[in-house]
Amino acid sequence: MITVRNLTKRYGPVPAIADISFDIATEQTGNIIGFLGPNGAGKSTTIRILTCFQPATSGSAVVAGFDVFRESVKVRRQIGYLPENAPLYPEMRVREYLNFRGKLHRMSPVDRTKAIDRVTERCWLGEFVDRPIGQLSKGMRQRVGLADALLHDPKVVFLDEPTIGLDPNQIRETRKLIRELGEQHIIFLSSHILHEVEQICTHTIIIAGGRVLAQGSPGELQEQISAGSKLIAEIKGPTGEIESAIRKIDGVGSVQTDSLGEWQRLSIDANGRADIREAVFNLISKKGWSLREMRREVASLEDFFIKITAEQKQR
């Protein structure tokens, strides 16, 4: 549904995003795509390119089957977009605004009325439809923006930081709504909040400094990040022999040994994604050594995200 190839966008000499590529296909990725990255990572720039607001400097992107650059009007018919902070015309009333947007999408008057009823119910705007937008609170305006993005029943809905500036209750409601919307639309949402993406997204793309750092389902992502995980084992046996024996196991990288009296504490790096726990245990039992602890130190997504966020800040 979304295919992005080597997308680059420069503002002057500085690249906002560099060489971004990813594929979104519902069968593999599910319907709710999280675009996660610290502030200034290039999330909004990417979304602006995918929604045909800005052209890219180089690279290509296909959304809903059409090229965003060459067939931009066709793409724009298929997408809904809620920009950050939901910009709206404050002087218009909610219904008036949605009606205007419906006309731009070439909907007939009957379809517009139906669609407005549908989206205002969906986004809990019922009693507010005849209020001027300027009088609404931030959370309500966000809902109007969301209602607008859903009005023409688009295939893909882009939400740029949809929960920013909302109170905790509204955040919970919005997340629930996004999960429901994922049943009918492909939702592409950007966020700088890790647990938000972990909670609602079926597929996550992590971006920082304008580059994609990791992508996959929550499980895959965990695996990618934990690939460089360590195995910690405390073993009692003949000093010197333990380390060399473990080094001979298939898939073992570097081994570090600390001596704790008669116990040896080994921290073992596995090559790639190899799971060496069984092999290590078999070795110990064959040799008749004692084992009092064995655990895998898994890097969590959160550690990973904090690390890249910190790197971003240093730049």
Binding site: R48, T51, C52, F53, V73, K74, R76, R77, I79, Y81, P83, N85, P87, L88, Y89, P90, R101, L104, H105, R106, G145, D148
Partner: peptide, 14 residues
């Protein structure tokens, strides 16, 4: 200034 240019130009209008 209001950013509405973004919603306007991402609707199917030239």
């Amino acid at each position: 200034r209001n950013g509405t240019i973004e919603t306007l130009m991402t609707a199917p209008v030239r």
